[in-house]
Amino acid sequence: MSIANVLLVDDETPFVVTMTKRLLKRDLHTVSAFSGEEALLTLEIDGSIEVVILDVKMPGMDGIEALREIKKRHPLVEVIMLTGHATVDTAIEGMKLGAFDYLTKPCDMDLLVSKVREAAGRKRQIEDRIFGVRLKGIAGKRE
């Protein structure tokens, strides 16, 4: 079983291709998207995605807008922002909007993987908690 299901979003194709291979090699089940719109579509289709690695600067729907939409439609999905220096402010703004963390390009692979693990862990924790609450609710009704 993979450590986590990841969606990698960036408009730079070679970056996405290589990064996907590297994440897969580290037991992260990774799918990719090349724009904000595509990312949303993928999330719609694939409900198993736990963590989104999102580039901030993209033509069309940029990272911040995509983040807003993701958090609206899939509040439990964790998002890690990926950014160049010029948009650190934007990344911080992303944090305020509910992103899990942000990393600057080029980033260290081990660091990225550990962030993904943390993000996935948090997601599962929250899910478990919600599941527990629901279970208690059902159990309470039966008694």
């Binding site: 070679p14 290589t18 160049g84 390009k105 080029p106």
Partner: peptide, 10 residues
């Protein structure tokens, strides 16, 4: 940063 990131990834 973008091309450098790609190089580093490769």
């Amino acid at each position: 940063n973008n091309p450098v990131a790609i190089m580093v990834e490769e």
